[in-house]
């Protein structure tokens, strides 16, 4: 398969993912009540998140230099990326630990499809795409309140940094999930992501010294939401945007390397 030219390999990958998602869609459309339940839950959590920010702003006029509506716009980005996780990552790569434990990974490896691609995107939770839409809507609503609507350049920068943030989050998931090749008893390793991602609810600049160091440099999770939201609120410097894109590319390359190392280690249950 690697003998094929890059263009053909990409076309094949897209065709594979499209076929998987079509089957997935046909299945999910049978459970439309789940959509309403999922929508209610998203709106509930979004409302609580906005109320939390409102509680902070009863005592202050800015959080790390961000106004109330700017923080709400960031919350929209937070919800959008959370939607990416719930719709695309948790149902696919998030099941890797269970696959290794049960031996189902052997069946995947025996398939002619590229395993990392197949494992990552075999299944999506279609209803959670609503989280992405609602997050973007919240950001738009909040931006309208700030009175500074972003221009086309800012929107382009937003989309590029949002995609970069999604790529970084994907890399974090691959890294976390690959732990299972070394330690089998980590069935809740995805909770580690949930715990750390909580920090991305607020602008990175809002955290005091020690926590900022932790979330900005040690586990750079705070950037995933702060950078795209900075693009929307006119804070993003070109250098920061370029760095984010470079970090995303590096993260994807590292992910590929990690995956290959991990899969080479994998000797199945009998090994």
């Amino acid at each position: 398969m690697s003998a094929l030219p890059l263009g053909a390999r990409l076309r094949r990958a897209v065709a594979l993912v499209a076929a998987l998602w079509r089957a997935n869609l046909a299945e999910e459309l049978q459970y439309r009540a789940n959509f309403v339940a999922s929508l209610f839950s998203t709106v509930f959590w979004l409302a609580l998140a906005v109320l939390t920010v409102a509680l902070f702003f009863r005592q202050t006029t800015s959080l790390g230099g961000w106004s109330f509506w700017e923080v709400v716009a960031l919350l929209g980005v937070f919800n959008t990326l959370a939607g990416v996780v719930e719709a695309f990552l948790r149902p696919g790569i998030g099941r890797l630990v269970e696959d290794v434990r049960s031996g189902a990974l052997d069946l995947v490896l025996a398939r002619p499809a590229e395993p990392q691609l197949y494992i990552s995107f075999r299944r999506i939770d279609i209803w959670r795409i609503a989280d992405i839409v609602l997050g973007l809507a919240l950001s738009a609503f909040a931006l309208a309140h700030t009175g500074h609507l972003p221009g086309p350049g800012a929107i382009l920068a937003f989309l590029a940094t949002l995609a970069a943030a999604a790529a970084i989050i994907y890399a974090i998931w691959i890294a976390l999930m690959s732990l299972t090749f070394w330690f089998v008893a980590v069935e809740n390793v995805s909770v580690l992501f949930d715990a750390v991602y909580e920090a991305a609810r607020y602008p990175a600049s809002a955290y005091p010294g020690a926590l900022r160091f932790l979330f900005v440099y040690l586990i750079p999770i705070a950037w995933t939401t702060t950078i795209p939201a900075s693009a929307l609120t006119g804070r993003l410097r070109p250098a920061a945007a370029a760095t984010t894109l470079a970090v995303a590319l590096a993260a994807l390359a590292l992910t590929r390397l990690l995956w290959r190392t991990a899969i080479r280690r994998y000797t199945s249950a009998g090994g």
Partner: peptide, 11 residues
């Protein structure tokens, strides 16, 4: 810890 971080900054 995150709530503490935010309140710490506000106060």
């Amino acid at each position: 810890a995150i709530s503490l971080g935010i309140w710490w900054a506000i106060s």
